[in-house]
Computed example of a mutant assay.
Amino acid sequence: MDISTPESVHLGPLLVVAPAITVSFGGAWLTGLVGALAVAAQVSIAVFHGGLSTPNHIAQIIGLAFLSIMAVIVRLVRDRRSSELVQVRSVSETAQRALLRPLPRRLGPLHISSTYLAAAKEASIGGDLYAVARTGNRTRVLIGDVRGKGLAAVGEAAALMGAFQEAAYQHATLPALASALDHSACRYLTQFPGADDEVQEHFITALLLEIPDDDFVARLTHCGHPSPLLISRGQVTSVPSPPAPPLGMCALEQGIRTSHTFSFEPGDTLLLFTDGLVEARDASGAFYPLEGRLAQWAKCSPEALIEWLQRDLLTYTGGALRDDAAVLVIRRAGLVHDGRRYGELVGSDGRQVADHDHR
């Protein structure tokens, strides 16, 4: 077009668009090839319009060659950073698989499904955690959230899960298990350098759950964590539990931890989650209405419920989470029970503290 137009019309400078566009989708070699073709085209224009010795054409050729070289350099830098990001993600995914090993889909009479949603797109690991342990004829579950982010939070999460996998088989009651985990967390946190005030800023909210095979109940010990939701007969309710400080609050007097027993019958589903789920916001700043959304998926399998919940959450937040979120869905399978409800409080010494809500 430039050759066929009068010499007063200069379309040659538009050739710079070619390498500029190519760098967005092509590799370094393709960008360099397109840049070389653009320079060759500019040389052809110069030959037909005034010759190569024209100062204007010389400036255009040099400028186009320089910009093409810069486009290739930009592409090389992007390729190197992309390669580094792939390696980081690979290491992150490997670390997550080692830290948060995939849970079995079936443990005794329980169907289990889980997911971990990381707030950082570049990584898939953080301070949220979950673990299960099969002890005899019962299943014990831990879900927790480490205060803070980064490698320090990952280290604290790993330490707590390691302690849980060991202590879950050594303590008869959940309060005793919670106390053991609290001592373990305090021992780990005191290894951080600095004054006591720094240690006090680290803690872990957690829930401990115990589900026996031979009784249609579940026991819960609360350690400053959001209460789980129970889906029973199509109704979604929050499971109440006595409040208690988080794990690792070394400077506080913990007192006697308790457990709450509630009905968990065949067909019932428990949803355990970290605060990243309920504190997710939409564009207007409104929190995610978890309890209201769950009712429409009450009859879904645990895997389907996780899938619908994850899809709905990302749609609600526009695909951007402010905090990591871990979710566990547990459903009991089996025969219909007579529907007895229990509500005793068991102390860390194994003795019953109170008994209420019998039906």
Rank of each mutant, 00 (worst) to 15 (best):
I3E: 06
T5Q: 09
E7T: 15
V9E: 11
G12A: 15
V16K: 01
G27A: 10
W29V: 04
G32C: 06
G32Q: 04
L33I: 05
L37K: 02
A38Q: 00
Q42W: 03
Q42M: 14
A46N: 01
G50S: 02
G50M: 00
G51V: 02
T54D: 13
P55H: 02
N56K: 13
H57R: 13
I58C: 08
I58T: 10
Q60S: 05
I62V: 15
F66H: 09
V77Q: 12
R78I: 07
R81C: 10
E84Q: 05
L85V: 08
Q87K: 13
S92P: 01
E93Y: 03
E93T: 12
T94N: 05
A95M: 14
P104A: 11
R106T: 14
S114Q: 08
Y116L: 13
A118H: 12
I125G: 03
G126Q: 06
G126F: 04
G127Y: 13
D128W: 06
Y130Q: 04
R134G: 08
G136Q: 01
N137H: 05
R138F: 05
T139D: 08
T139N: 08
R140A: 04
V141P: 05
I143G: 12
R147C: 14
G150W: 03
A152P: 05
V154N: 00
A158S: 13
A159F: 09
G162R: 12
Q170A: 15
Q170G: 04
T173Y: 08
T173H: 11
L174D: 08
P175C: 06
L177F: 08
L177V: 11
A178K: 03
S179H: 14
S179D: 14
D182Y: 05
A185L: 14
C186D: 04
R187K: 10
R187E: 12
Y188C: 07
F192Y: 10
G194S: 08
G194I: 09
A195K: 12
V199D: 01
F203S: 12
I204T: 02
I204S: 01
A206T: 07
A206N: 07
A206I: 08
L207G: 10
L207C: 14
L208C: 06
I211H: 01
D213F: 14
F216Y: 10
F216W: 13
F216I: 09
L220M: 02
T221N: 03
T221M: 01
G224M: 12
L229R: 06
L230D: 03
I231D: 07
G234H: 00
S238H: 03
P242N: 11
A244C: 02
L247Q: 02
G248D: 09
C250A: 09
A251P: 00
L252K: 06
L252A: 11
E253R: 13
Q254V: 13
T261K: 08
F262W: 00
F264Y: 00
L270H: 14
L271R: 00
L272K: 01
D275W: 00
G276F: 06
L277G: 04
A283C: 11
S284T: 15
S284E: 15
L290R: 06
E291T: 14
Q296P: 02
K299G: 04
Q310Y: 03
Y316R: 02
G318C: 05
G319H: 13
A320K: 15
L321H: 11
V327F: 06
V327D: 03
V329Q: 00
V336W: 03
H337Q: 06
R340K: 09
R340D: 12
R341D: 10
G347A: 15
D349G: 06
D349M: 03
H356Q: 14
R359A: 14
R359S: 11
